Amino acid sequence: MITPYVKINLNKVKANIQFMINQLRKYDIDHRPHIKPHKNIELAKLQLDMGAIGVTCASLSEMEVMVKGGIKNILLAMPLIGDEHWEKLYNVLHSHDVEFITIVDSKLGIEGLAKVGERLERPLHILVDVDSGGHREGIQSEDVLSFVEEINSNPWLTFKGLFTYYGHIYQYENSLHAKHAKKEASILISEREKLEKHGIKVDVLSGGSTVSSMEAEQLEGITESRAGNYIFFDMNAVHLGIVEIEQCALKVIAKVVSKPLPGKATIDAGSKALTSDQPLKGDEYGYIYNRPNLKLLKLNEEHGFIEYDSNKEKLEIGDEIEIIPNHACVVPNLFNQVFIDDGKGLKSIEVDARGRNY
């Protein structure tokens, strides 16, 4: 195999999916996974076959790939703004049979989505994005009621529920995850109760990251989780204390190409294969799974710099190393194809939505 390449352990992927779905089901929470970690139709269908109710897409073009690949139930978790985006959305929905729902948090967004619904001659299903403290996007609590009422007054939009992304949970130590998962759920539940007091039906409460979904008991009351990273996990998940290294399903395989000095070696994988994402703990750009005493301490674009104790470790040019990246979600988007290890051999699959970040 030409290095660097991505190897995905299929058995670990299946175990991770089953674990997540089972964990959520205990508390009557559906699973609608983000597919941006893998961007692959085959893996999305695997998640659906194993019990997911639909998928979540991070961009309009990513959604288009999934729709063309036969995925029939999609949440687009990005506010669409601008004539070009609304035109593209119209073309996708006009050309394909898909159960579609999306988010909105602005009057301009309402106007644009309503125009799409009118052209399609059917209302679009809408979730109102609520800011749960991360301030990435979302309506503030005091404005939710009037905003939902505005949606309900538009014949080309159908309000279905509430959405939030509590991404700042990643800032906290493991011991605080349960508390913040409960807070995430309570924000959505509280907003639903306020709307229901005004006679507004709320079918969907959409939340749940990988971290908060590991505390599924605390999310009880929401209707769906959009956890995504869990399909592979990575070193930052390990650093957060939510998984063990053996649960990590994705590795970047690289090769030692140079040994300029004793205790120093260079591999053929840099930031364009591993990303430059920093670890939550330590200073390494990934964990070298098959040679844990080697440390990956610096990256150029195509080169990785390894340091080790040459008195204790024997390392030769040509040796292959297996790296669990700090942040696995970004890695498949750096490759045209990845390789699935099913225990019998490696099978190449395309990263179908690679580069579809718009």
Rank of each mutant, 00 (worst) to 15 (best):
Q47C: 14
I324L: 15
P37I: 07
S61A: 06
E118A: 11
A273Q: 15
N91T: 14
I324T: 07
V92E: 08
G51D: 14
P292V: 00
N152A: 09
M214N: 14
E284T: 04
D341K: 02
S348D: 06
I71D: 04
T164R: 09
I187S: 03
M1N: 08
E62W: 10
K344L: 14
P332Q: 03
I242Q: 02
K194L: 11
K347H: 13
S106C: 04
K182F: 12
D234F: 07
E149Y: 00
D143M: 06
Q278S: 09
K45E: 15
V148S: 11
K179Y: 01
K295Q: 09
A249E: 07
I189S: 13
V65M: 01
T102A: 13
G241A: 12
A254P: 08
D309L: 03
E150H: 11
H177K: 02
K259V: 06
L315T: 12
I126L: 05
F335W: 01
A216G: 10
G282P: 10
Y5C: 08
L240H: 05
R136P: 13
V331M: 12
L108E: 10
N22E: 15
M63H: 00
Q218E: 02
E215Q: 11
L60V: 01
L89C: 07
P332G: 09
M20R: 09
L113Q: 01
P4L: 06
S95H: 14
V338L: 11
E302D: 13
D283G: 15
F19E: 10
S59V: 03
L75M: 02
G228V: 11
G221I: 04
K72P: 07
A216K: 06
I324G: 08
I139D: 03
L24A: 10
H168D: 12
S186F: 10
H96Q: 04
P279G: 08
T275Q: 09
I321R: 07
R354V: 08
D143Q: 05
G54T: 02
K88T: 07
K197D: 04
G241W: 05
D49T: 02
Y90S: 03
D234R: 13
F232Y: 13
G199V: 00
A77P: 08
R354H: 04
I189R: 00
L261F: 03
K314C: 01
M63R: 00
V202A: 01
L124K: 00
T210E: 15
G355S: 10
R136F: 05
E224V: 10
M20Q: 14
N16D: 15
V148Y: 12
Y5H: 08
E246R: 15
R119F: 02
Q337G: 10
N22Q: 12
G270A: 07
K201D: 11
D105F: 07
E246T: 14
I110W: 14
K36N: 14
K183F: 09
E320F: 12
V202E: 00
S59D: 01
S106Q: 06
G343S: 11
P155H: 13
V55N: 03
Y285G: 02
N152C: 04
E184V: 00
L176M: 12
L261V: 05
E149G: 03
